[in-house]
Simulated scan of single mutants.
Amino acid sequence: MRVLAAMSGGVDSAVAAARAVAAGHEVVGVHLALSAKPGTLRTGARGCCTVEDAHDARRAADVLGIPFYVWDFAERFTEEVIEDFVAEYAAGRTPNPCLRCNEKIKFEALLDKAVALGFDAVCTGHYAQLSVVDGRPELRRSVDEGKDQSYVLASLTSDQLRHAMFPLGDTVKEQVRAEAEQRGLSVADKPDSHDICFIPDGDTRGFLSDRLGERDGLLVDDETGAVLGRHTGVHGFTVGQRKGLGIDAPAGDGRPRYVLALEPVSGTVRVGAAEKLAVTGITATHPVVPVMWHGPVECVAQVRAHGGTAPAVAELIGDEVLVSLREPLRGVAPGQAVVLYRPDQAGDLVLGSATIATTR
């Protein structure tokens, strides 16, 4: 097959490309330039948008002996990921930019271009297992549960998955680093990326304030309605947040307060006790269902990229997914994705995903 290897400049994508070469595929490496001003990002940033990352990807391609290109997707990334991120926070929701990037950049914009150029698949260094059963692709958790990235890939459609390759799904991270060293790849010891790539200093609140400005509002006790303080924008908060609320006086019972709800129209941030964060039901929209299922289905629901799982019963009704949690989850925020898994011996199978609209 002709394979386009997306090479971020990290160890995972380099080893994934190496495995595609070793499997006998005709491989071409490509690095996505996602920042309009890559020189402004901090040197050595643990992201995937710096000039240094592009150089690392090129060196890895040279070692593998494959052609290498840099494709400028900065404008598309700004529109589909950064502007969406800002708009979601302004609306009082909590987005996942990595999920959005996979959906709109790596497996829509990049894949569309790859297919148009005659490539059969896009190869990435994501930790997830992918197989084809009865002609349909099935996405499962990685063998390395600690690195599993099936959650941020769960919004991919069946057609996108048919053109995807995840060579690292059967491997744990330590083995990947050892293999990189054996292959002579200089990124073998490169740290993993942890930051949102377009917020390299990690100051999400500051990033949003620069773009949205100050939108004054009130911090209100959810139980009594008492005004506890003021803030400069609901975009500085997310459901489940405890620190940085700006409330001087402790609660009457001495327990900490958490963000319970955001009301962007009125600018109100409602806070209260931890037990009020417990969610037993979720209504989600814009479902993506790569595996067909009907009626209520027993599954495991996950609401965050790492953690936030509970046994559940889910039902697909029109363009909504109704999820009843058998165990309550805390800090479930509108805008997040809920991903549904069916445990099996081959690894937890992704049944589908949807965007959380409301909770109960």
Rank of each mutant, 00 (worst) to 15 (best):
T124K: 13
G125W: 00
L41K: 04
V220S: 04
P343C: 03
D72M: 10
C48G: 05
D195H: 13
T224D: 11
G118P: 11
A90R: 15
V28E: 13
V220F: 11
V239I: 15
A87T: 15
R270K: 10
L41A: 05
L34W: 06
A357Y: 05
V122A: 07
P328A: 12
L218V: 13
G318M: 06
D248I: 15
A22G: 02
P97M: 12
V187P: 00
K190G: 01
R42E: 14
T50Q: 10
A284M: 06
F237G: 06
L218D: 12
H25C: 08
P67M: 05
D248G: 10
H163S: 13
A17P: 00
E179G: 03
G318R: 06
D216C: 07
V143W: 12
L111A: 07
R330V: 14
T40P: 02
Y69S: 13
A337C: 04
L153C: 05
V291G: 01
C48F: 04
P38I: 13
E223V: 15
D53P: 00
D134R: 11
S142L: 05
V339F: 02
R177I: 04
M165L: 14
H286W: 06
S35F: 04
D210Y: 09
H231F: 02
R100C: 03
V143F: 12
P167W: 03
I66E: 01
A337W: 04
A333F: 02
E108F: 05
L212P: 06
V297R: 01
K173Q: 12
I247T: 15
G92T: 14
L130C: 09
V288G: 03
A274P: 03
D62R: 15
C101S: 09
A17E: 05
R215W: 02
G92P: 03
S35A: 11
V313P: 00
T285F: 07
P256A: 09
A61D: 00
D192N: 14
G146C: 05
V220A: 08
R140P: 01
G281E: 15
L277Y: 07
Q241C: 06
P328L: 03
H235G: 07
R162T: 14
A60R: 02
V3Q: 09
R304C: 05
V303K: 02
D62E: 14
Q302K: 15
